[in-house]
Simulated scan of single mutants.
Amino acid sequence: MKNPKLIVQQGYDRLGSRYREHYENANPERYVDWLTKLAQLLPSNANLLELGCADGIPTARFLSQGFKYLGIDISPVQIELARTNVPNAHFEVADMSILSFPASSFEGIIALYSIIHVPLAEQPALIKAVYQWLKPNGYFLCVVGADEWTGTEANWIESGTLMYWSQADAATYQSWFIESGFKIVEHCFVPEGTSGHAFFFVQKIA
């Protein structure tokens, strides 16, 4: 198998806006509920980071209205779309697993269905980095795997688009959060078709 990160980048580059169009009807209210929950706990003008922002809809568009928002994505095509869709936010092309920020840079960090595109062996270190980037009492909102699985799909969303995922099970993610120093604020299963994902809302202990 070729480089998993290249698979992810090329897959999202190839899909462009069709990725968002495909999921627009997949319970968009769920995102609003999650983001509202986070926004209500943040100080005004908080600094926020999203890992895997795609085209900026809905997360960047929602959060940039009241906060200082930075979105990161490995796909240059998605970042260009995001800059057009949400011109008042900031976006950069980057691999989330090798990012570097000063400690205590953000009040909140978001990663919805994006960490599971990173090879599993790199995810514990990324979670520890998130903890360091957050200010004391800061929040991390994420959706990760509910069951352990690593693999690819050859025709994801449309014919010819290859995509890669790598994920642990929910109990493993919970243990990684706790070991990193997070307090679990909320955790639930997010059903999708015959399977689903794990939602975690965690807080950095001051």
Results as ranks from 00 to 15, higher is better:
residue 76 P to A: 05
residue 53 C to A: 06
residue 26 A to L: 09
residue 158 E to T: 08
residue 14 R to C: 07
residue 8 V to R: 07
residue 165 W to G: 11
residue 19 Y to G: 00
residue 41 L to A: 14
residue 185 V to W: 08
residue 56 G to R: 01
residue 150 T to I: 14
residue 192 E to N: 11
residue 139 Y to P: 02
residue 59 T to F: 10
residue 123 Q to I: 06
residue 10 Q to C: 03
residue 57 I to M: 02
residue 174 Q to T: 12
residue 64 S to P: 06
residue 159 S to Q: 13
residue 2 K to H: 10
residue 74 I to F: 06
residue 44 S to A: 15
residue 10 Q to D: 07
residue 53 C to L: 01
residue 154 A to W: 05
residue 30 R to Q: 14
residue 126 L to E: 08
residue 156 W to S: 01
residue 2 K to Y: 11
residue 153 E to D: 07
residue 126 L to P: 09
residue 146 A to H: 15
residue 63 L to M: 13
residue 26 A to R: 07
residue 26 A to G: 00
residue 167 Q to E: 15
residue 11 G to M: 03
residue 23 Y to N: 04
residue 198 A to D: 12
residue 115 I to S: 12
residue 135 K to M: 11
residue 13 D to W: 02
residue 150 T to M: 12
residue 195 S to Y: 10
residue 19 Y to Q: 01
residue 87 P to K: 08
residue 176 W to K: 04
residue 9 Q to V: 03
residue 68 K to S: 14
residue 24 E to Q: 14
residue 29 E to S: 13
residue 13 D to A: 02
residue 185 V to K: 12
residue 66 G to P: 00
residue 45 N to V: 01
residue 26 A to W: 13
residue 68 K to L: 12
residue 162 L to G: 00
residue 139 Y to E: 04
residue 2 K to Q: 15
residue 145 G to E: 11
residue 194 T to Q: 13
residue 135 K to Q: 13
residue 187 H to G: 11
residue 77 V to T: 15
residue 166 S to H: 02
residue 20 R to M: 10
residue 105 S to T: 00
residue 67 F to A: 06
residue 110 I to F: 08
residue 76 P to H: 06
residue 168 A to T: 04
residue 115 I to N: 04
residue 144 V to F: 06
residue 178 I to F: 09
residue 122 E to K: 15
residue 152 T to A: 04
residue 30 R to W: 15
residue 143 V to F: 07
residue 4 P to T: 01
residue 75 S to V: 06
residue 115 I to D: 02
residue 29 E to F: 11
residue 99 L to P: 04
residue 179 E to F: 12
residue 132 Q to H: 13
residue 16 G to N: 00
residue 134 L to E: 11
residue 101 F to E: 02
residue 39 A to Y: 06
residue 152 T to Y: 05
residue 90 H to N: 13
residue 83 R to P: 00
residue 145 G to V: 08
residue 197 H to C: 09
residue 4 P to I: 01
residue 118 V to G: 01
residue 94 A to S: 13
residue 166 S to G: 07
residue 190 V to C: 13
residue 143 V to N: 11
residue 42 L to Y: 02
residue 192 E to S: 14
residue 10 Q to M: 05
residue 175 S to Q: 14
residue 20 R to E: 14
residue 192 E to Q: 12
residue 161 T to Y: 10
residue 78 Q to V: 05
residue 193 G to E: 05
residue 152 T to P: 01
residue 204 K to I: 08
residue 111 A to T: 01
residue 12 Y to S: 04
residue 137 N to I: 06
residue 59 T to W: 10
residue 113 Y to I: 09
residue 102 P to R: 10
residue 52 G to E: 02
residue 14 R to M: 07
residue 110 I to M: 07
residue 184 I to H: 08
residue 200 F to C: 01
residue 124 P to L: 08
residue 45 N to T: 05
residue 102 P to V: 09
residue 166 S to E: 06
residue 181 G to V: 05
residue 80 E to T: 10
residue 45 N to H: 12
residue 14 R to N: 11
residue 105 S to N: 00
residue 84 T to W: 09
residue 84 T to N: 14
residue 85 N to I: 06
residue 13 D to I: 05
